[in-house]
Amino acid sequence: MHFGLSEEQQMIVDTVRSFVENEIYPYEDEVEKTGEVPKAVGQTIMEKTKELGFYACNFPESVGGAGLNHLEFALVERELGRGSMALTHFFGRPQNILMACKHGQIERYLLPAVRGEKMDALAMTEPDAGSDVRSMKCSAVRDGGDWVLNGAKHFISGAEHADFVIVFVATGEEDTPRGPKKRITTFLVDRGTPGFTIREGYRSVSHRGYKNMVLEFDDCRLPDAQVLGEVDGGFAVMNTWLYATRITVAAMSVGRARRCFDYALNYSATRKQFGQHIGKFQGVSFQLADMLTEIDAADYLTLASAWRLDEGLAANREIASAKLYATEMLARVTDTTLQIHGGMGLMSDYPIERFWRDARVERIWDGTSEIQRHIISRDLLRPLGA
């Protein structure tokens, strides 16, 4: 196995990092203070991303994307992780699940999303269901040849900008040895569809400006043409396209941890106490050593899981391990960086307290740490019949 980056992969890293430093960093303070991304700023980031040729870089060249493989895309996300999520959202990585589009959906949703003419959002989480997808109450029933959707979704990232939303809803039940379970279908729902409302969600301490929205469906009528994949085939669509999104969370956590570590390292080399730089104290220097070791470990674990996907190897457990370790590593790194900065670490004059706050959500979304541990342990025990 080769652990180094190719010349092309290193160019990807250098290009995206430069973009984040020059096009994202300058706006972070404003977004942090206002909780909003000015429309003109978001549009500028989108246009510059297109000029670079990186918009929808996670899509194959056959539909107009850059055709990056999973490993290369993880490198992109790692560098984007250094910047504000509210701003890097406009770098443009539509949901890969749109590759399940068929017939008229390709021209109506897939290709406009890849070209940056339309933005999408993914809606799965519900107030009473959370990580238990089978418990969702948002449902769709047949009526006169159409589907009628009712219910609500929350914590929906990016929905304020979305032209359409990819929604998972219950469309019936099936009997299983463990009792009845919901059948799930995926729908494409356009903003402005009668009976469909997008409204402001909750105020979060993590990722200011990167909003979560509430979606409400009140007798929202959709034709069969809006079904993504097959009726009752939502899990098949989900398992084919979505589980690799955990790599994104892991990769972005690594990128953010490296940026945070740079602050800790530079501060330790310049801040003086008791007549010497604080990095000279073993209590600080050993913390730096531990931080970097953990970051490197999370980095290799994440890239290895992406590599397995590219090689066509089973990767569910490895992806879960990467997501689990990288997000919990980020929590430790941000907390230690804040500790090294002392009281100033908590002040808004420095970005440290922002990194600390932002890190908290990573252990929750895209599958909590507990869900990842369940995936890992299940993968270990099932072959033994346990």
Results as ranks from 00 to 15, higher is better:
residue 233 G to I: 01
residue 132 D to L: 15
residue 319 I to W: 03
residue 108 R to F: 11
residue 51 E to R: 14
residue 128 D to M: 15
residue 330 L to Y: 10
residue 116 G to L: 14
residue 275 G to M: 05
residue 324 L to R: 09
residue 315 A to G: 07
residue 324 L to Y: 13
residue 284 V to I: 14
residue 35 G to R: 03
residue 95 Q to K: 13
residue 13 V to F: 10
residue 339 Q to Y: 14
residue 14 D to R: 09
residue 191 R to D: 13
residue 338 L to Q: 12
residue 242 L to S: 10
residue 299 D to K: 04
residue 92 G to I: 08
residue 232 D to Q: 09
residue 347 M to C: 15
residue 258 R to V: 00
residue 188 L to Q: 01
residue 153 K to H: 11
residue 139 S to G: 07
residue 208 R to V: 03
residue 290 D to I: 10
residue 200 E to H: 14
residue 154 H to D: 15
residue 376 I to C: 04
residue 198 I to K: 03
residue 198 I to G: 07
residue 98 L to A: 09
residue 261 F to C: 02
residue 28 E to R: 08
residue 83 G to T: 12
residue 328 E to P: 01
residue 36 E to L: 11
residue 205 V to A: 11
residue 168 F to M: 12
residue 42 G to E: 11
residue 238 M to V: 04
residue 200 E to P: 02
residue 253 S to Y: 00
residue 56 A to P: 06
residue 93 R to N: 10
residue 139 S to T: 12
residue 312 G to H: 03
residue 270 T to L: 10
residue 83 G to M: 05
residue 119 M to T: 12
residue 81 G to F: 00
residue 180 P to D: 11
residue 223 P to A: 07
residue 255 G to S: 03
residue 199 R to T: 12
residue 255 G to E: 02
residue 376 I to N: 06
residue 93 R to H: 13
residue 181 K to R: 15
residue 345 G to Q: 08
residue 283 G to K: 06
residue 144 G to Y: 05
residue 373 R to E: 09
residue 239 N to Q: 14
residue 129 A to N: 11
residue 343 G to S: 14
residue 100 A to C: 08
residue 99 M to Y: 10
residue 385 G to H: 11
residue 357 R to Y: 12
residue 171 T to D: 14
residue 191 R to F: 11
residue 297 A to E: 06
residue 322 A to Q: 04
residue 300 Y to S: 08
residue 357 R to F: 10
residue 193 T to M: 00
residue 331 A to K: 13
residue 174 E to F: 08
residue 14 D to I: 06
residue 6 S to V: 07
residue 385 G to I: 10
residue 192 G to W: 05
residue 170 A to D: 07
residue 184 I to M: 09
